[in-house]
C-alpha cells in the first residue's frame, strides 16, 4: 500500500539523456520551462511538444510512464481549464445564467492546459533519467556561487540527499510497525476521520523514535568518518560537461529559441 508512493522515481539506463551532466539537464529544463511560458500560438507549442517528444524517444523511457506522471495533475488541469473557459471576457459563443463561454476563454484554457502538461512531463523526464544523487550534486554545483553570500549550499544538498536516501527506509519501517500494531489489534481502516487519525498514534510515536535514533546514528557515523561539511571536500565522481551536453544544449536552445521567435513574429 505505502510502497505505491514513489518519489523521484529514477529508471537507470544508458541513453544520451542518462549520460548527460545533471547540471546541463537542469539548465536545459529551466530554459525549456521559460520557453513554454513565453510562447504563444499553435505552431510554437507544436514545436515545444515535438521537441519534448523527440527527447522522450531518445531517453527510451516508455511513454506510458510519462502519461502516468501526468495523472496527479489531471484535476488541476480540468480545474484551470474550466475556470479559464468560463471567466475569460471576450467574444461570447454561448451563455447560460451567469456562465458564458468565449472564444478567448477556450483559447486561454487550451494554452494553460498545454503549458501544465508540458511542464509536468518535462520535469518528470528529468527525474526519470537522473538519479536523486546526481540531481542533488548538480543542484549543489549550480547553486555554488551562492556560497559567496554565505548560503549553506553544501549543507542543503547533503540534507536533501540524506532525506531522499531515507524515504524508502522509513516507508519500510512504517509498514513493519503497522503490522506489529495490527497484530496487537490496532484497527487503521474503520471509524471516522478522527478515530483513524487517533489510531495512527501507535504508528507515529515508534516511527519518530526510530527516525531520531537513525539520525543520531548517522550523525555519529559521519563524524567518525571525519565529515566536516563541504569545505575542502573532494568527490569520487566529479561532474564534467561532455559532448553530449554540448549538443543537447545547443539543440534544445535552438528549438526553444525557434518556438519563442515564432510566437513573437506570428
Amino acid at each position: 500500500m505505502l510502497k505505491d508512493i514513489t518519489l523521484g522515481q529514477y529508471f537507470p539506463g544508458t541513453s544520451p539523456l542518462h549520460r548527460m551532466d545533471p547540471r546541463a539537464k537542469l539548465l536545459i529544463l529551466i530554459f525549456y520551462i521559460v520557453a513554454i511560458f513565453v510562447c504563444n500560438g499553435l505552431i510554437p507549442y507544436a514545436i515545444c511538444a515535438a521537441g519534448l517528444a523527440a527527447v522522450i524517444a531518445l531517453s527510451r523511457i516508455s511513454p506510458k510512464l510519462i502519461l502516468k506522471s501526468l495523472k496527479p495533475v489531471v484535476f488541476i488541469v480540468i480545474f484551470t481549464g474550466v475556470l479559464n473557459v468560463l471567466y475569460t471576457p471576450g467574444q461570447e459563443l454561448w451563455r447560460w445564467w451567469i456562465f458564458k463561454i468565449t472564444l478567448e476563454g477556450i483559447y486561454t484554457a487550451l494554452t494553460m492546459i498545454v503549458r501544465i502538461l508540458l511542464l509536468v512531463a518535462s520535469t518528470s523526464l528529468l527525474t526519470y533519467t537522473t538519479s536523486p544523487m546526481a540531481l542533488t550534486d548538480g543542484l549543489e554545483r549550480l547553486l555554488g556561487p551562492l556560497k559567496k553570500l554565505h548560503v549553506p549550499v553544501h549543507e542543503f544538498a547533503m540534507m536533501m540527499s540524506i532525506a531522499l536516501r531515507f524515504i524508502p527506509t522509513l516507508i519500510e519501517e512504517t509498514e513493519k510497525i503497522m503490522s506489529a500494531q495490527k497484530a496487537r489489534g490496532a484497527d487503521f481502516d474503520s471509524g471516522n476521520i478522527f478515530r483513524r487519525a487517533k489510531a495512527l498514534v501507535p504508528v507515529l510515536v515508534p516511527l519518530f523514535v526510530s527516525a531520531f535514533r537513525r539520525a543520531d546514528e548517522l550523525a555519529c557515523a559521519m563524524e567518525c568518518r571525519l565529515y566536516h561539511g563541504g569545505v575542502g571536500r573532494t568527490r569520487l565522481h566529479t561532474l564534467r560537461y561532455g559532448r553530449v551536453d554540448l549538443w543537447g544544449g545547443l539543440l534544445s536552445v535552438a528549438v526553444c529559441a525557434a518556438a519563442i521567435a515564432l510566437s513573437r513574429l506570428l
Partner: peptide, 9 residues
C-alpha cells in the same frame, strides 16, 4: 515481531 521493543509507544 522481531525487535518488538520498536513498537512501544
Amino acid at each position: 515481531f522481531q525487535y518488538p521493543e520498536y513498537q512501544l509507544f
